[in-house]
Structures are given as C-alpha cells and as structure tokens.
Design a protein around this nucleic acid. Structure first.
Lengths: 329, 329
DNA sequence: CTGTTAGCGCCTTCAG
DNA sequence: CTGAAGGCGCTAACAG
C-alpha cells in the first residue's frame, strides 16, 4: 500500500507539498498538483482514513444507531437522515445495537469513531449515552429523554397521536377498548399508553386492565396477544395496537379465528408502516413524520457541532390516517 | 478526553504498563491491572479507536454497501450479514452508495476504513471495486462479476429463477408474455431476462419485443410501464416483472383501469419481498435466499481474511412461490 | 510555493 | 514492572 511518502518521493516533491496538493490547498502550483496527482495515480495511492482522522480529530461522519437495522419502520427515517447528512458533506453509517454492550453501536459511541450519533435503539443504555455525549460529540435520541446538555431529544408526539386514535375509536361508538402494549421499558409505548388512558378518562370510559396485553412491538407478539384476548372470550369493541407490526399480527390471529375486522371488531395501529396500506383490511393508524424526524435530528447534530445553542427537546406532530379497520359500531 | 497517558499517570504506572493492562496482556500482575482499570474508570477513559486502528492497521469491522439503505429488499440480507459478522466478533456498518463517487461507500472503499466489504449497489463503479480489493481487503459482490481475485461473487441464480417463473406461466397456458424490465445496466436484470427468453425459446414461443418495457426496478417505474402496456391495447396473457416492486406498481395500474389480476391477466414478480404476500392478489414470485446470501457473503470475507483459498463465485438457488396472481388460462 | 518538523493517541520493543 | 523511544500515515504550522 503506497503512502503519501511514496507519492511525494515519486513526484519529486516534499511530503507536505504532496499533502497540500492532494487536499487541494491553494498554496501549491497547478503544475505541481498535476505532478503529484499523476504520481498518486501511478502508485494507486489511497490515503489512510484513520491517520487522517486521527490527525484532525474529526471524522466527518455521523452514525445512525438502530436496534434493528432490518426493521420496517426505519426506511423513511434513514432517508431523512441520509439526505441532510449528505447535503452537509458528511458521511453516514448505520450500525446496529444488537449485542447490547458488546455491539458495534456501543463501540462507536465509546471510542468516538464518529462525530455525532442519532440513536433509536432501546437496548442502548441511557447511561452510556449520558457518558458519551459532549460538546464535540453531540447525540440526538429519538426514543427517550436523557440528562445531558449535548444529548437532545427529538420525538413524535406519541401521546397526542394515541389520544386522537383512541378518540377516533370512541367517536365511532366503541366503548370497551383494548390496548396491546409494547415492551414495558419503551418510552414510546409508555407515552402511547398515556395518550390512550387520557382519552378514556376524558370521555369517562373505564379502563379494564384485563384488556391490556403485552405484545413487545413484534408481529409475533401482536399475534400472540390477540390470541390471548380471543381466548379470554368477551372481546372488546375495539383494540389499539401500540404499533402497526403488532396490528398486522393481530389481523392474522383474527383471520385464523374467523373474526372479521372491522365488522366484528375495530382496530387501530401506530406508525403507518408501509404494509399498513396493503394489509387486509387496510389499517387505520397514526402516521409518524419519520422522514422529518430523521432530517431534524441530523440538523440538530450539525447545529450542535457548529457550537450553536439548540432546544433541548423537539416534538413532532402525528396524524391519524383513516383506512378501513375501524367501523361505526 | 482522557488519554492512556492520563490513566497511566493516575494509576501511578508507566504508560506501557497501562497499555498492557488495558489490553489484557499476561505480563502484568493482577493487582496492577486492577489499579489501572480503576484509574481508567475514574477518568472515564475511552480509547481512541482510530489511533488504535492506525497502529494495528486493522479495524475489525466490515462494511455492507447498499445503493439504498431504505429499500425493502435488504432487511433479510442485513440479518444474515449481521449475525455472521457478530459471531466472529467483528463489527458491521452499513453505508449507502447514493452520491456515486462522492458517497460514503466510495470513501470507505478507497480509504480502507474497514477490513472488508459486501457490495450490493449498482451505482458503485466496477473499476473502483477492482482497484480496491486486495489480499487484506476482500470484497464480496452480490450483483455482478468482477475481475479481481480478491473480489468474489455470490449471486442467486437469477436465470434459473426467471426460467422457472416463465415456465410456470407457460404451463398455465399463457402464450403471449410481456417482460417489464429493470435498468439496462443491471446484471440481475440481464440474467432474469435471459432466463425469461430461454424459457420462451425452450417452449417455442416467439418473443415480441413490443412487450418488453423498461421499468427501472421501482414501483413507480412498474406503474408507468404497465400503463404504457395497457395504452398499447392488446395486452399479453401474462407479464413477468423483473422485480416485485415493479409488480406492485403494475397491480396499481391494473386496478386503476379496472383490469382484474389474475382473471384478465396473470403476473409474476421476482424477489419475494415482504409486501408480495399482502398485496391484492398475493403475488406469485420467485424467492431469493437473501438471508443465506448475506450470511455466505460475510463467511467468505472471513475466509479470505484468514488467507484461505475460496471459490471465485457462488450461485444460490431460487424458489418459485405460488400465490394468487397467476391463473390457468 | 516548498521543505522541515512536530505531533494526533496508541502500541510495541528493549534495555534496565 | 518501568521509561524511553520509534512509528503507524497524515496534517499543519513555520520557516525558508
């Protein structure tokens, strides 16, 4: 592997000249640049990214940390992040937090291999985030709040979204409402449940705890939770699934038991994943501004990197999208 | 940011001792290790990944380069890659090639910021791959062939898959067949078209070039291509879409025109993306072993990294999955 | 414009 | 176990 030293020697210039030429500094003549470039090409020279980063203590890349790089939710988020990152001439890498404290994500956070990070990964310790964020290493967290001035918070208004969805169910005449929950340690889930409860309370509808079932945000979990609900007999009028994936699983469970949605029971989801539109019946759900959340998150990273003061927290609105899984009772 | 120097000072040992202790060398006593570790903890020391990588000329991470990190196809692939990578104690980062030669992907390839790469990104120049791959930087390419002993090729048998799908259409009595194509510079598309043509030839069915339309692998493209086909009047009996995304777009176009699938026309796709099962009617398509492809790809990277000899090329089989978009004519 | 020089933070001898 | 020293490859003053 040729180094810059070889290039300089071959071009017959000083090491620093080669460096300047390669980096397009203005303090070197066109002829020299050409000479250096040619030497570099001939030697198939490629600079060593680490050495350069090490020297500049700056990587020009930011990380997007996800608990599940393969999940359906993330594609739009990534798009937003990607575009803003690229337009700022930064690089973006995505890494997964599976493996917890031994994960790639943890390593990148700890070792400052990037200039900033956006995190949507419930299995990353809050403590790690709090320890890692600092002035030259801003973090945006999408799924919780964190006590550190350099770790800010962009979230969608889960509570409001859940409130509206629940309200929608109530307005359609449903009175006994079930809630299929995400994992207990999920901040998003908690907020959604709060919105759900608030709506119930607001409309003076009692909450029956037997109708709250845990489903862990996966399709499989939604499927199982729904089966349990069915087995209990005495189904509610409608079910609020804390995310779409679980709702899809629920649909499957209903179908197997010959229960018609929405004729027999109404359901709503949360997220508006791509599938929601294609499932049968198309799912009424709460759309999250994922693209915007991603774009805003990177935006904030850059502001912090530039040393500007930023809000500690942002809240994006959701929108109810009505399809066909809810019917007037 | 505390450095190893600070740790050594605080622990009251030599810098080299601290380094040994931190890296678990055997030439240092347990007591000292403990002392150093404590100092590190107290200072919230984290090593600088670059400095360390630079020194060892090794990153222990491999990159997965995708043209579209947000695409629907990739989630399973990622899963396969992820698992194998993690089980080898390596890190995985995903990066996008959007932006072509100015993309993050290009940078990582050029600057050897990782120990190896898996590429599925038609917008990365073949030349760049050929220039980058070397003994200590193996590459696995998933969507083309490359002339470089350290760049091997894992592909699914597109030709066979397309052949079987086409055969299926023919066996169901369809005689005039359309082909909605992907981009012309896509190796996958080319192979699929070859499989399609081979089947036609094998069954002595003439190919009508007016029934080959370009759709660029996007849903939108499939939609437009289908509209064009419809506008031409005289629809074929069946259409082979070179991928599922386009077929989904096609379904949309048919629906808008009141054309029934499969009653009026049969269609098949390719890939078996998640949506294929949920679309209406559920799409008959060709399943690719994406997980396996990903897992195999990393596997090969590790073999090459270990200096073992490996095959230059691997070919994975596809499988026809029959759903409801094809009917006996 | 060019060359010299001093590190970036870490790892690894090597002689005490 | 220590301390010094050399270097990984590159950048960025600072003098010439």
């Amino acid at each position: 592997m040729a180094t810059i030293k070889d290039v300089a020697k071959r071009a017959g210039v000083a090491l620093s000249t080669a460096s300047y030429a390669l980096n397009g500094s203005s303090k070197v003549s066109g002829a020299t640049i050409e000479k250096v470039m040619r030497a570099a090409r001939e030697l198939n020279y490629q600079k060593n990214g680490f050495a350069s980063d090490l020297k500049r203590t700056k990587t020009n890349t930011i990380a997007l940390i996800l608990s599940d790089m393969s999940g359906p939710y993330f594609s739009e988020l990534i798009k937003g992040v990607q575009e803003v990152t690229a337009s700022n001439q930064y690089d973006l890498i995505a890494c997964s937090s599976v493996g917890g404290s031994r994960s790639t994500a943890t390593k990148f956070l700890r070792e400052k291999r990037v200039d900033g990070a956006i995190i949507l990964a419930n299995n990353i310790q809050t403590q790690l985030i709090e320890e890692s964020a600092r002035e030259d290493f801003p973090i945006v967290v999408l799924d919780r709040e964190v006590q550190n001035p350099y770790a800010i918070h962009v979230e969608v208004n889960n509570r409001q979204g859940a409130f509206e969805a629940t309200e929608h169910l109530i307005e359609k005449g449903h009175r006994s409402l079930g809630y299929v929950s995400g994992p207990m340690d999920s901040h998003d889930n908690e907020e959604r449940f709060t919105g759900f409860s608030d709506a119930l309370e607001h409309y003076d509808i009692p909450f029956q705890s037997r109708l709250k079932i845990s489903g862990d945000f996966t399709r499989e979990g939604g499927y199982r939770a729904t089966k349990m609900l069915i087995a209990q007999q005495n189904l509610p009028d409608a079910i609020f699934y804390a995310n779409d994936e679980m709702a899809v699983g629920g649909l499957q469970a209903f179908k197997e038991k010959g229960i018609q949605v929405p004729a027999d029971i109404s359901i709503v989801g949360f997220d508006d994943i791509q599938l929601a539109e294609y499932v049968n019946p198309p799912l009424t759900t709460v759309r999250q501004p994922k693209y915007e959340a991603g774009a805003l998150a990177v935006h904030m990273i850059f502001q912090m990197l530039a040393g500007e003061k930023v809000e500690k927290s942002f809240n994006l609105s959701t929108e109810l999208v009505e399809r066909s899984s809810v019917k007037m009772k």
